[in-house]
Design a protein around this nucleic acid. Sequence first.
DNA 1: GCGACAG
DNA 2: ATCTTGTCGC
Length: 217
Amino acid sequence: MAPEGASLTREWADQQRRLADKVIEQDQLPQPLRTVAGVDAAFPERGRVTRAAAVLLSFPELEPLEQAVVEQATTLPYIPGFLSFRELPAIRKALDGLSATPDLVLCDGQGRAHPRRLGIACHLGVATGLATIGVGKSRLCGRFDAPDSGKGSCQPLIDGEEVIGQVLRTRDGVRPVFVSVGHRVSLETAVELVLACTPRYRLPEPIRQADRLAGAY
DNA sequence: GCGACAG
DNA sequence: ATCTTGTCGC
């Protein structure tokens, strides 16, 4: 018998490279943009349970419109570089729990700023066809210079010769977030939209509310 | 071989 | 991410 378990991440990596070719890095968002969703997952019960949340807000007002939560048994451990295989199934169910399809989805995690260019935001985008943006709280890969301390300041996140994201200061003096293309959005537009969704806190409002709903404190 | 490593 | 209390600072 082949050591299937040992080559699982190899299979996943191949799948990631295939799906990464389907990512669209051009702006193809509904015009005008009327709604923005935020998604996130938490792992209560010592990680045995996966709880995913999706919230829908109006844009640009960012008023809460609707929310959905789903819970299921956790299927996989967290493996750096393969986060989406663990979280995507539950997150998709949470999104399906919304009565309306969002014009844009903000994801907690990377988009193209991933070793094989398929972070969870890209994976979700390609799998659903929705426009998505990745907003990570920390770096997975790439190098960068610290952006100036003022809100709106940013520096390119670089891997080799490629710009894979923007390190963006969403508030004066706080740690920057890592913005990258998910699907059907350009990096420039992604940065503008993340700022438009972040009126007060470090994290964009859709993601903050999804965090809270999922139970992350 | 060594260091890094989204959530 | 999870487990976990109080504590420092605007």
